[in-house]
Design a protein around this nucleic acid. Structure first.
Length: 496
DNA sequence: TAATGCGGGCCCA
DNA sequence: TGGGCCCGCATTA
C-alpha cells in the first residue's frame, strides 16, 4: 500500500549480524538452502516471517491460533488467510472469577452466523464478533507458501483484539464435551441440571446449561486482565492427540470437561519479551521506547499505570480489547471501567497499534521483523493514523519462475551468533533453558514483564478444576506476572 | 457439521 | 492492477 511499506518489502533487511535476511512471500525466489527451520508458531502476531519445514504438520495445515479464514488472493501459489477476530460478549460481562469470554469465531460463514445468534452463556447478552483490524484497518493476513522443502509463512498486521480460543482447544473441548455427554456420569448430572435452569444464576455461569448443552464449543473465557488470554495451545502441535482429559469424577459433570483442558500448566509457551529479542535486534533503540506500557503488569497499586493510562487511552474506558476503540465497533464496557489496567495501557496506543505488536520470537533467525513493525511502538505516544501508512502490504499477484537455487540467505549457524535472538525457540530447544536463563526478569522489570505477560505468555492460563464443562478459563492474578513467568521458557518442549 | 481450500466474481482505490 | 471480500463448491475430518 504505502510507499514505505513497499520499500521495506523490497529492501534488504540487514540484521545486526550483518546478514541479509530478506524475503517476502511474494518473491519469485525464496531462500532454498534453509538449514534450520523455525519451530511452529501458533500465535503469530505482527509482521513476522517464518520458515517451517515442509514436514511440519502444523505448517502443512496452515494452522493458527487465530481464527483465520481463507481469502482468495487469486494466487494459487500463495495461500492467504485473514483473521476473523474474536467473538465476545456484547456486554463484556465479567465472570464471577474475573474472567472474560472470548470465543473462536467459526471459520465457516454459516457456522459463524449461527454462532453469533447465540447468547452469552454468562449474561445472556448477545455475542459480538470483534473484527480484526490490525492491518491498516483490515484483518491481519497470513500467507503460506510451499517452496521446496520449506513452508514459508508471512504475517502482516497486528491483531488488535484478544485472542480467541485456539483451534486445538476448541477441538479438545469439543471432544471432551462429547465424551462427557456420552458418559453415564454426565447423564446423571444432566438430569439434575436441566430441570432447573434458573438455579444457575447463582453460579458463576448462570447459563451453564446453555453452554454445556447448546454451545459446548467455541467457548473461551479470558481473564479479567483482559489479555487475550491465550490459552495454552502447545500440545496440539506436533501432536495428534492434543489433550488428554482426565476426568474429574468429583466435579460436577458440567465442569469436568472444562476442567481438564485447563489443567494444563499455565504459561508453558515460550514467550519471550520482544524487546530483548526481536526488537532489540531489529531496532536497538526500540526497547528504550518501551513498546509495552511500562506499567503493564506492574504492581496493580501503581498510580503510574492509571495516570499513564488515562493519558493515553482516555477513550477506552478500560475496554478489554482494542477493537472497542474501533469506529465500527464502539461499545461500552461499564463493568470494565477501572479495571483491566494492564489492558487499558496496552490499548492506549491508538486504534490499531495500541496493543502493540508482539510477534512471538522466532524460533530462529528465519523469522524477521519488519523494521517498521517495531517502529510503530515509538513510545507511549498513541499510534497515529500515519503509523498505519507504514504497514507493509502484500502483492499477492506475482510471477513465479522456476527457482534455481539461489538462496542468498544463510540461516544456519549464524543464528547462534545473534545475541539479540538468543531467546529464540530453536536455541531454546537446543540449549534451553540455559539460553533463557540469562534473561533475568527482575521483579521490577515492567517492560519485560509486560512483554512476557502480554506477548504470548499472557495466556498464562490457569486451568481450574472447578471450571465448567465446555469452558476454558484463562485466569491469573492481577499481578499475574509470577504465574506467567513461572514457565516462560517452556514451549513445545515436549512437556505437555 | 464445520473446517479448509479453491476459484469466480465484484467492488474500490 | 492490486487488494479485500463475498460467494459457491468440493473435499476432508
Amino acid at each position: 500500500m504505502s510507499k514505505s511499506s513497499d520499500q521495506f518489502d523490497n529492501s534488504d533487511c540487514v540484521c545486526s549480524f550483518g546478514m541479509k535476511l530478506t524475503w517476502d512471500i511474494n518473491d519469485p525466489k525464496l531462500p532454498q538452502d534453509t538449514k534450520q527451520y523455525d519451530a511452529f508458531q501458533e500465535w503469530t502476531d505482527g509482521y513476522v516471517r517464518y520458515i517451517y519445514s515442509a514436514e511440519d504438520k502444523n505448517a502443512q495445515r496452515h494452522l493458527s491460533g487465530w481464527a483465520m479464514r481463507n481469502t482468495n488472493n487469486h494466487n494459487c501459489q500463495i495461500l492467504k488467510k485473514s483473521c476473523l477476530g474474536v467473538v465476545v460478549c456484547s456486554r463484556n460481562c465479567t465472570l464471577s472469577d474475573g474472567t472474560k469470554l472470548q470465543l473462536r469465531p467459526a471459520i465457516c460463514d454459516k457456522a459463524r452466523q449461527k454462532q453469533q445468534k447465540k447468547l452469552c452463556p454468562n449474561c445472556s447478552a448477545a455475542l459480538e464478533l470483534v473484527p480484526c483490524r490490525g492491518h491498516s484497518g483490515y484483518p491481519v493476513t497470513n500467507f503460506w507458501r510451499v517452496d521446496g522443502k520449506a513452508i514459508f509463512f508471512q504475517a502482516k498486521g497486528v491483531h488488535d483484539h484478544p485472542r480467541p480460543e485456539s483451534k486445538s482447544e476448541t477441538e479438545a473441548r469439543r471432544s471432551a464435551v462429547k465424551r462427557r455427554m456420552a458418559s453415564p456420569h454426565f447423564s446423571q448430572k444432566r438430569r439434575l441440571v436441566e430441570p432447573e435452569p434458573g438455579r444457575y444464576h447463582d453460579m458463576p455461569f448462570p447459563n451453564i446449561h446453555q453452554l454445556t448443552m447448546e454451545t459446548p464449543d467455541r467457548f473461551s473465557i479470558i481473564a479479567e486482565s483482559n489479555f487475550p488470554i491465550q490459552t495454552q495451545h502447545y500440545t496440539p502441535f506436533q501432536n495428534t492427540e492434543p489433550y488428554k482429559f482426565p476426568y474429574d469424577t468429583h466435579a460436577p459433570a458440567a465442569m469436568a470437561d472444562a476442567a481438564s483442558p485447563l489443567q494444563k500448566p499455565s504459561n508453558h509457551r515460550l514467550y519471550m519479551a520482544r524487546p530483548p529479542c526481536g526488537y532489540d535486534f531489529a531496532v536497538p533503540g526500540y526497547l528504550s521506547s518501551t513498546p509495552y506500557p511500562t506499567a503493564l503488569y506492574k504492581d496493580p497499586a501503581s498510580p503510574h499505570s492509571e495516570a499513564e493510562l488515562n493519558k493515553s487511552c482516555s477513550g477506552l474506558s478500560g475496554m478489554p480489547h482494542t477493537t472497542s476503540s474501533l469506529p465500527n465497533h464502539e461499545r461500552s464496557y461499564p463493568d470494565a471501567t477501572n479495571k483491566h489496567h494492564s489492558w487499558k495501557q496496552i490499548l492506549g496506543k491508538g486504534p490499531y497499534g495500541e496493543r502493540g505488536e508482539y510477534p512471538q520470537l522466532s524460533a530462529n533467525t528465519n523469522h524477521y521483523y519488519n523494521t517498521e513493525y517495531p517502529c510503530r511502538y515509538t513510545g507511549p505516544t498513541p499510534t497515529t493514523p500515519t503509523a498505519l501508512q507504514t504497514i507493509i502490504t502484500t502483492t499477492t499477484k506475482v510471477s513465479y519462475q522456476p527457482c534455481p537455487k539461489p538462496s542468498v540467505v544463510k540461516y544456519g549457524e549464524s543464528i547462534y551468533d545473534m545475541k539479540g535472538l538468543s531467546n529464540c525457540n530453536s536455541l531454546i530447544e537446543e540449549t534451553s533453558p540455559n539460553s533463557y536463563s540469562d534473561l533475568k526478569i527482575p521483579e521490577d522489570s515492567s517492560v519485560i514483564k509486560t512483554a512476557l505477560s502480554y506477548q504470548d505468555s499472557v495466556p498464562t492460563k490457569i486451568e481450574r478444576t472447578e471450571n465448567f464443562e465446555g469452558y476454558r478459563y484463562s485466569s491469573y492474578s492481577s499481578n499475574g506476572c509470577p504465574e506467567r513467568l513461572a514457565h516462560p521458557y517452556r514451549y513445545e518442549g515436549g512437556e505437555y
